[in-house]
Amino acid sequence: MEILNLDNITIKFGGLTAVKDFKLELQHGELVGLIGPNGAGKTTVFNMISGIYTPSTNKIYFQNRDITGMKPDRIAKLGIARTFQNVRLMDNLSVIDNVMIGFHLHLHSNLASAIFRFPGYVREEEGIYQKSIELLHKVDLEFNKEVQAGSLPYGQQRKLEIIRALATRPKLLLLDEPAAGMNPQETKELMGFIQKIRKDFDLTILLIEHDMKVVMGICERIIVLNYGQTIAEGNPAEIQHNPEVIKAYLGVEAQYA
């Protein structure tokens, strides 16, 4: 079953074409990697899917529904959640509040019942509090629930951000460099964790990652972007031997050498 379809989308900023004719179809339950050198337009693709940018041409379909130009909060409501390359937590709020904000979409109490703490509201809050604790438990953060999110170590912040995204009960999860800043041990745990939540929450996952161990280790299918265009697509083995990909990456590597 097709869950996401990017139908040859293009986005331009001023005169610059950031992403060109990008095509992507995701089937339900897939775990797909999106890789490419810095500035290739990977995060821009995420920003278009989550509604922060609108493609200049063509459309995005989520579960066969046109979501092009929808606001991010409506897209979230339809079931797309994401994390950010540069972690975006509510730094001055507690860890538990950060997770509870993820449940925002599923709250039904009206303003008056919230201000005056009607029983229905209190029950609802207690419910999502419990669920948040359960989610925190999955990443061993439940004992830090009252800590300010901004004061957590970087690796834990990344995990918290994933948990927060899960709280929205997404069908599609977009992870933007989840392993960035993690040590090898943490990265290994993260790989297990991603596979686990994919199964537990029946997720489809699209993943941007620079750490090739992660991408090659867990993705079933990989798409390679360079200069805003797809240069290769296939399973990890195919990608590893694709001359275009090697050229794109070595070209970049060569610059650093």
């Binding site: 991010p72 909060d73 509510m90 709020l93 509040d97 904000i101 925002h104 919230a114 927060r164």
Partner: peptide, 30 residues
């Protein structure tokens, strides 16, 4: 009233907007 509001789920959304507007919106806060 204000204390009631800000310590409620609605207040949490308001503070989420203050902390990080883009993240709040992506979490579904209108």
């Amino acid at each position: 009233i204000v204390k009631g509001l800000i310590s409620s789920s609605y207040g949490r959304a308001l503070m989420a907007i203050r902390e990080n507007e883009i993240a709040a919106e992506v979490m579904g806060v209108n």
